[in-house]
Design a protein around this nucleic acid. Structure first.
Lengths: 260, 260
DNA sequence: GCTTACACTTAACTTAAGTTAAAAAGCTTA
DNA sequence: TAAGCTTTTTAACTTAAGTTAAGTGTAAGC
């Protein structure tokens, strides 16, 4: 019914995927490298951490709420969602896990996961012994500062999620989330113009933003009709970033890519 | 630590305040001591960290969104709120800061605060150089594990906040928050039966739970009329914890006080 | 004691978002 | 290619929560 524009700024969304493997550094190296200058030794250590990888098919749960969680995961490729299921059957998605993100950075000897995590796309995940993460703070001060920054940033991202849920309207929530994902993908160099990966369903979006599926659809349709976004299978194009940021009060400084 | 519960049901709330100073250990020592066995050396180190204290009057902001944040704070006495102000003038309270909580555990050299914090009551706060916090991971593995546990718990608490905002109804949100605060106060031994400190206004509550003041008042009145809670100035009594937990699906295990 | 200010309470009315239901559009696989 | 999914879309209707506007405490200050 609505116009599915094939290309806005010239490029097809498929190219986003093509870019990914072309870079030889892992996402976490790109992420920490974007905020600090890493030595070759530090880069080698980070790459070495990620030797033990796991392939997870889209849709698979790999962390389950209440189960023991004694492993740290580093997302190498693909997206996942972190969520909670309520006894009522309702679901709240807490955050999206993007390449370069760490899950279970603060696990303890007896800790249980307080959330579940499922792959949204096929994922490649590094399985790391949390003791090796501790090693970092002993031996690599720059990396330790980087991890500390990651933790602070995760707090900020979760705080933003609370702001969206508590104090923004439906369409504002969508706009704000899109800009957050855009910021995060830009940091690791996985954007192509204003095209953004968008592997989640509208049901996922509803459970992220505290809305019903129907209402998410209504607001998405409105954004499309007003030419603010373009939706394609698994990708969004942000046609009007200015409109999105104005309507959602998104603060670009907030998750800014400052140097250590 | 446990002789704190001198009186059970039926006592007047004022007594809560009287009990507080009677304990000679600081809140953070009580908190970490509740999840791990601390040596005298570890206790002394923690107490020594808190030599440089600051008195903050109720209502005062002590962290401001966007400003440099290069200090770690440990809340020794009193409550604070962590919040965000939107350009629209709306406000979202992200979490409450209770005795024994740490603010700015993951500050970096150039980091700016991504939230503001204001005292709800008169507070006593320890001002700590973040480098001394780093010292912990070098010299005191048990304390380091404790701090890591604190971080994971803060994530869980903020996640719970997202669940409340996204997927619970108004009255469920209130019930769930009350039970969270009850759990957290119990861990540091600052409860008196089912009496709970309650220094926040209904406007604070509204901005915490993503509701309007009027609606918070409606739901509080309903909970009082149904004899589920009793409200007094600055204190709540949870008359019917079972009803609160059933209506809100609060999971007592979730923030459980497990041993390391 | 009177005044100001802020927190709480209640009522009447409005609205954003939820619900239900059904159909259309996409994938996947036999 | 058809059958059987899941996801998206639309419409009609309902409801929980918001808004506005008074009013009633209650504590602090003069």
């Amino acid at each position: 019914m609505s116009e599915r524009k094939k290309n806005i700024e010239g490029t097809r969304p498929g190219i986003v995927a093509d870019l990914q493997p072309s870079d030889d550094q892992s996402a976490i190296v790109r992420k920490l490298g974007a905020i600090s200058l890493l030595s070759q030794e530090e880069i080698d250590f980070l790459e070495g951490l990620q030797n033990n990888t796991l392939a997870i098919a889209a849709g698979t749960d790999f962390i389950t709420d209440g189960n023991d969680l004694r492993t740290t995961f580093i997302m190498m490729e693909g997206w996942a969602k972190r969520y909670v299921l309520l006894p009522s059957g309702r679901r709240q998605i807490l955050s999206y896990v993007l390449p370069g993100d760490i899950l279970g950075l603060h696990v303890n000897f007896r800790s249980k996961a307080t959330y579940s995590a499922a792959a949204l796309t096929d994922c490649k995940v590094a399985v790391v012994d949390p003791r090796r993460m501790l090693e970092i703070s002993q031996k690599f001060p720059v990396l330790a500062a980087g991890l500390s920054w990651c933790t602070a940033r995760e707090f900020a991202i979760l705080g933003d999620q609370a702001v969206r849920l508590g104090r923004l309207g439906a369409q504002q929530r969508i706009a704000h989330l899109l800009l957050e994902l855009r910021s995060r993908m830009r940091l690791i160099g996985e954007t192509n113009g204003e095209w953004l990966d968008f592997p989640m369903t509208q049901a996922d979006l509803a459970d992220t933003l505290g809305l019903s599926i129907v209402h998410v659809n209504r607001q998405l349709m409105d954004l499309r009709q007003r030419k603010i976004i373009t939706l394609e299978r698994d990708h969004v194009h942000l046609d009007d970033v200015k409109a999105l940021s104005e309507m959602s009060h998104f603060d670009f400084e907030h998750l800014a890519e400052f140097q250590i």
